[in-house]
């Protein structure tokens, strides 16, 4: 057994609360061919908390997020150096010996644009389970209901589970994608700018959902919207041209950042 590391965080907001480390990025470099997109990233990820990645376009926040489920393995010429340790078993997610499929079975992802499969609502949510070989009807039914309820969509779709997913509105589609990601009980849920294609009302419902989900699951979210980071996250990492400039409790980052660059970005003087 590997002891779960307990790390004290000196946050102004939650000074007394201790956080359990869920994952740790250690000296991570990432290369797209000859271009280095991430430089020496070190960052913790705390269990059942929301961590937001912010920064101007091209700073590498999505690149970092996609390292967590080895999405970069799908395209040739990409190279990782360093580690992402997943606790409690201390698996290095970036280890070439660790199958990316194993990583993706433990860590789910919700994409920028809702990407439901052209299948029924039910089959969309059940897909992750089917991939894992679950075919028993009663198990699937239960899991689909649980996941849709978890994504605050069950009430709206329970009478039309056989309908095609693209008949849903944009916000509903994104919640369906969240349900699809939840159905397999992942340890971490990754969000890549999940509301950038949605209207303000749908955005608000997704943000509320993220607030509910963090009670059960560790969340890492990329957002270009600083207000969103301030609203939904407990921790924030500010990135700039492939480097992690500052990481701290969200309140600290937004109220008194230590770094001048962070402050300029937060206050809108830059970015």
């Amino acid at each position: 057994m590997v002891a779960t590391p307990i790390v004290e965080v000196t946050s102004a907001a939650n000074p007394q609360q201790s956080k359990v480390l869920k994952a740790e990025v250690v000296d991570l470099n990432f290369h797209y061919g000859s271009v280095q997109a991430l430089k020496g990233i070190n960052m913790p990820l705390y269990e059942k908390h929301v961590t937001a990645l912010i920064g101007p376009s091209g700073c590498g926040k999505s690149t970092l997020l996609r390292c967590f489920n080895r999405m970069h393995d799908l395209y040739p010429g990409n190279r990782y150096e360093g580690r992402i340790k997943l606790h409690p078993d201390d698996t290095n997610l970036l280890d070439p010996k660790v199958d990316p499929i194993e990583v993706r079975m433990r860590i789910s992802m919700v994409f920028q644009k809702p990407n439901p499969f052209p299948k029924s609502i039910y089959e969309n949510v059940a897909y992750g389970l089917r991939v894992r070989g679950v075919s028993k009807r009663s198990v699937l039914d239960d899991k689909v209901e649980e996941a849709l309820s978890g994504a605050a969509l069950w009430g709206e779709v329970k009478d039309r589970l056989r309908d095609l997913a693209f008949n849903l509105s944009g916000g509903q589609q994104q919640r369906l994608c969240i349900a699809r990601a939840l159905a397999t009980d992942p340890e971490i849920l990754l969000f890549d700018e999940p509301t950038s294609a949605l209207d303000p009302i749908a955005t608000a419902s997704i943000e509320e959902l993220i607030g509910d989900l963090k009670n059960k699951i560790t969340i890492l979210i990329v957002t270009h919207n600083m207000q969103q980071a301030a609203r939904v996250s407990d921790f924030t990492a500010y990135m700039y041209i492939g480097e992690l400039v500052e990481f701290d409790a969200t309140d600290t980052i937004f109220i008194k950042p230590k770094n001048k660059q962070t402050e300029d970005y937060i206050t809108g003087r830059f970015g």
């Binding site: 799908l74 993706r104 079975m105 789910s108 994409f111 439901p116 990601a181």
Partner: peptide, 23 residues
């Protein structure tokens, strides 16, 4: 077929053949 669909299937842990045969 948009790459978002491929990535969506892979992100759920599908192997290449599962992605090809089911999507």
């Amino acid at each position: 077929i948009p790459s978002a669909i491929r990535e969506g299937a892979y992100a759920l842990g599908a192997t290449r053949w599962q992605m090809v045969s089911q999507h």
